[in-house]
Design a protein around this nucleic acid. Structure first.
Lengths: 233, 233
DNA sequence: CTGAAACCTAACGAATTGTAACAAGCGCCT
DNA sequence: AGGCGCTTGTTACAATTCGTTAGGTTTCAG
């Protein structure tokens, strides 16, 4: 498992540097951005595990960014802000942020808070072969998908790979590139529509209405996102 | 699903009361304790979802308690402390606490922080994906717009982005620049009328009379403004 | 009132996505 | 071997998305 990736979004270069240094010393990978545009462009390529977002500059727009990050990227979102009002903190947290740190701050505390979030977030049993989500239960050990009523359908290996990728990254945008990177190990450079077909087949197994898929959503031009409350057990 | 149980461990009765009241107003169940012994006795009977722990406890070293709570109970542990040193915070977090709140604090912030933890941890309170406004209900999780009569239309991702931007900033002027900054991430530098077309399409979905739009108003030369009473839920 | 700028939107089309149908590969049984 | 069934990539075509264009309408300064 590679080190968690932390993105830093702040308009002040010194702060970016300070954070990046502290985080890298702590063993994280980092990417820094001075502007929201660049940051969002980068999100098309990679999905960070933790996003540090400075809220001072874009005032209100930053909050919608936070909202979207928490929703679509499923990342841990930590707001860093000079605005110290309680109301700011409350709304920030309610919009989906996982923590709210006030400037000026100590890098050591930022690191500790990130670690605390990651610890809790990753505290899932990694060796588990069973996950439940939205009325379904997936048994990866016997390639079976269990209905709400208890009836089971089997799924194939390829379908299971995709399903597991989704269940491991719920509420996170997954691009086709990332999928092929994760799953295409065997097939190598298949540039075609294979992934779409896999998704399509998985969708029918999950009895998704093609017009309104509830679980596997397509984001035009970007990839897929799995919505659903996953519990590994 | 029952309400999450929050335990409060603090030796000052006023603080216990203040917290309990705020938490119960927010819909949590609470149990308060003045001493670690009582608290630990209660742990034999019930397993709380969240533990608020005052670290300046008289009769026991709080940090070992925190450590044990986090490790053995798997509960969410939030330290409340008068000790404001960075080092205190870092060691507290590193010993397994999920958050560290400094006295004096606002109850509202405590509630918000608890909610943020629960949201991430057990998906008890997921970030809201539904907003209602002026007879409409927008379901962002399934890309659907619900009529007053309950009939639904779907909207695309791009339309949803615009709609969410409006619903996040009601009664606020939004310039084209701001829009492209927020939404342009997908297609890079798009000039011209793209945003107008998005708005136009959204307007037809909202059945706006083109001559007299009620919800999305154009401010000539400045941008758009969304009028409407938004309630996120 | 007049003209230019801003805005609206129907229509077009390139890019993207969904999926049915086909085919190749594999294991298994007779 | 031959046939059957299952898996899975490929192809082809239909559907959708969404920016662009173009022409019409609205707004506003002078």
């Amino acid at each position: 498992m590679t080190a968690p990736l932390v993105t830093i979004l702040d308009d002040e270069p010194e702060i970016r540097l300070m954070l990046a240094e502290a985080l890298e010393d702590a063993g994280f990978r980092t990417m820094s951005f001075g502007r929201a545009r660049e940051f969002e462009a980068a999100l098309q390529k990679t999905t960070p595990d933790v996003c540090l977002v400075d809220l001072s500059l874009p005032d209100r727009d930053g909050l919608t960014l936070v909202h979207r990050l928490a929703l679509e990227q499923g990342a841990i979102v930590i707001i860093i802000s000079g605005r110290a009002q309680v109301q700011d903190r409350v709304t920030g947290l309610e919009l989906g942020a996982d923590d709210y740190i006030i400037k000026p701050f100590e890098p050591a505390e930022v690191v500790a808070r990130i670690r605390a979030r990651l610890r809790k977030d990753r505290a899932v049993a990694p060796t588990s072969n069973t996950a439940s989500f939205n009325g379904w239960v997936a048994h990866f050990d016997r390639y079976a998908l269990e209905d709400e009523s208890g009836t089971e359908t089997t799924f194939s290996h390829a379908e299971g790979e995709v399903l597991r990728l989704f269940l491991d990254n719920p509420k996170r945008l997954i691009s086709r590139n990332q999928m092929q990177e994760q799953l295409g190990g065997a097939a190598g450079e298949s540039f075609d529509r294979a992934m779409d077909v896999r998704i399509s087949r998985l969708r029918t197994k999950l009895q998704e209405d093609p017009k309104n898929p509830q679980l596997i959503k397509t984001i035009y031009g970007a990839g897929y996102i799995f919505l659903g409350e996953v519990i590994w057990s």
